[in-house]
Amino acid sequence: MKEIDELNLPEDLNYAEDHEWVLRDGDTVKIGISDYAQDQLGDIVFVELPEVGAVFNKGDEFGTVESVKAVSELYIPISGEITGINKSLEDSPELVNTDPYKNGWMVQVKPGNPDELNELMNRNAYLEMLKGME
């Protein structure tokens, strides 16, 4: 497992308490899980994602990630409608481990309430939270 100072936490992202990240991208956002989360889970073997068009409220379970001996629920950090999913995770779930912020993204969402974006943490706040969990 990585030490906290070994984690890759990009500046341009927002983070949620359940370790999802959010990237603003025009009208929509992309969501994935952080380097910390993928490291804790270990080798990811399967990612279950929702169907395009599904609508969620903030905090709803929108999918699961599985390692060999664990299943973790994914909670959506903002309300909205799913406008795209990362189909390449179907055959290559390891992208979540190897490239959590680029090719390992999970869903694209059209925010229902853009104000919720302001409630997310920036890099520093997230880092502080992780330090507090130690």
């Binding site: 073997v45 399967f46 599985e66 390692s67 060999v68 001996k69 664990a70 299943v71």
Partner: peptide, 12 residues
């Protein structure tokens, strides 16, 4: 594929 099973996914 043990994540389907009771000892991991418990009530689900």
């Amino acid at each position: 594929l043990a994540t389907r099973e009771q000892h991991i996914r418990r009530e689900k």
